[in-house]
């Protein structure tokens, strides 16, 4: 059954006359390769040019801060529980009175580690999080020769402090709102 019009019928007719010298075939092939010299090269020169990720791309995790710059994570452990690859570990700690600006609630994650070699980037942690603290961003875990470097701690995961004006990432904010709608 023919599904598309793209398939070509195999031509098995015996070569005749001029075709027997293979010259027409050779010239045809050379014309094809010559034409390809002027085609646009589809290569993306990676380190300099980056292809934009899809808007639903699940990349490296990011631990968000709230609008005041305090960490949202309360170390409830639901992400670790949801994780099918068991890539997430954390240690909880109690917030000191002088740390109010640093952590949003009274309990916070003193240690939060994701093993990027175990992680399958399924996004279940993001779904499990009740505090909107963990999201999968649109960047990738960079390659390295050392296996130890793939255990990402808080130094790599927590969102850098930004001034409030730049705080809202339009794309992630829109994504979060959409997600909240779905959750309701």
């Amino acid at each position: 059954m023919q599904l598309t019009n793209r398939s070509k019928k195999v031509d098995t007719h015996a070569l005749q006359g001029m075709e027997k010298t293979y010259l027409p075939g050779i010239l045809k092939g050379m014309a094809i390769t010559f034409k390809h010299m002027f085609k646009k090269v589809p290569t993306i020169r990676y380190p300099e040019v980056k292809k934009p990720f899809s808007s639903v791309w699940r990349g490296v995790h990011i631990l968000k801060r709230d609008e005041n710059g305090a960490e949202r994570c309360t170390a409830c452990g639901l992400c670790a529980l949801a994780c099918p690859a068991e890539a997430i570990t954390m240690e909880a700690a109690e917030r000191k009175p002088n740390e109010v600006g640093l952590y949003r609630e009274e309990k916070y994650a003193a240690k939060y580690e994701i093993n990027m070699l175990r992680c399958i980037f399924c996004g279940l942690c993001e779904e499990a999080c009740p505090k909107e603290a963990i999201f999968l961003s649109n960047s990738i875990a960079s390659a390295n020769y050392d296996r130890g470097t793939f255990i990402y701690g808080k130094d790599k995961l927590v969102e850098p402090v930004t001034p409030p004006s730049e705080h809202v990432n339009v794309f992630e904010e829109g994504y979060r709102k959409q997600w909240m709608k779905l959750k309701k």
Partner: peptide, 13 residues
């Protein structure tokens, strides 16, 4: 380079 452009690649750059 010629092999590359004939195969729609960039070649050594």
């Amino acid at each position: 380079k010629i092999a590359a452009v004939m195969q729609d690649r960039v070649g050594p750059d």
